[in-house]
Amino acid sequence: MARQAPVRDVAPTVQRLRLRYAKRGRLRFTSTRDFQRALERALRRTGVPMAYSQGFNPHPRISYTNAAPTGTASEAEYVELALVKRLDPERLRDALDEALPEGLDVLEVVEVRTPDLAARLEASVWTVELPGVGCEEASSAAAAFLKCDRAEVSRLTKSGMRTFDAREPVVRLETREASPGADGTPCAILDLVVRHVTPSVRPDDVLAALRLVADLVPPIPARVTRLAQGPLVDGASDGDPRRAVSDPLAADRD
């Protein structure tokens, strides 16, 4: 007879912790799955008392939310852990940050006091560096894009090639000039705020749209960083783009 999965005497969850971490430098090339493996191994090395699922293949209970694409750096990735013992969030932050490689950096850990972090991650603030693109060229492309009602782009997703509108979720798109590189190459920077929709619209989709509507073709691949995620702030249509969203962990901190 087929064996039944043993009913295991698993310890109950007594605490949940939310982590914000960054993906920096060369480790921006890690995928979500790469990060997941690295995190789970770091948790085991540091002896974090994780809660496990039932079944034949018990898994540590970790929720991953809305990860930045492979190749994209980020200062604002979120993960939630379920634990069977109560930990000191600050000590866990230090220990996990130490155990993870440099470039996967745990920035803050807070105890969960409110449900549904994912719902609060309404939008992302991105910065897109375009080496080899002048600021004027970028500005006029951005203006052309913002004038459109729709900007349809296609991308290969897990469920095949999908076509969707990259314009509507874009809340803000501004351009500025970075200090030129050592060899004097210009570099435009796009500040981009995008609402999270399904299918998700990512910075490379906006770049694809800029190519379609304004022939903007960066000679060198763009360097993209997610600066923040969180609830959209009403009326924050100018000023520091990071203020376009508020801290999604604020409610847990109160």
Binding site: Q15, P49, D88, R113
Partner: peptide, 13 residues
């Protein structure tokens, strides 16, 4: 992992 434990359990979360 013992060094990670919270100093005193705070109930009621």
């Amino acid at each position: 992992g013992d060094d990670l434990l919270a100093a005193a359990p705070s109930p009621g979360t």
